[in-house]
Amino acid sequence: MHFSDTDFEEKVIKSNLPVMVDFFAEWCGPCRMAAPIIDELSETYKNKVSIGKVDVDASTGTAAKYGVQSIPTVIMFRDGKEVDRKVGFGGRGGYEEMIKKVI
């Protein structure tokens, strides 16, 4: 799933489920390390956490709003608010831990 500047409010901020957002860019190597793990986790935890990606090149507004200065940055939102953040490649354990804290 992808989020953009236009649907971020609706799909992330107003979501009933916690939402994990992976800020990435196509040309970023460590983002490519994170991508398959994020995909797998979104399958494993579907219906419990909504998981999606924001392309920082395409959605510069959202990336700037949340002060993303390093990619990948993964932010967990609950009730529209940031509750957790991991900067740089976090590994499966790191991302799974973020999810377990909110479910």
Binding site: W27, C28, G29, P30, Q69, S70, I71, T73, V87, G88
Partner: peptide, 17 residues
């Protein structure tokens, strides 16, 4: 300061600076 000024991947993060 990782992600708040410090980076080990300039290629990834240069555009934010």
């Amino acid at each position: 300061y990782y992600g708040k000024g410090m980076s080990t991947c300039a290629v990834c993060d240069a555009a934010f600076y």
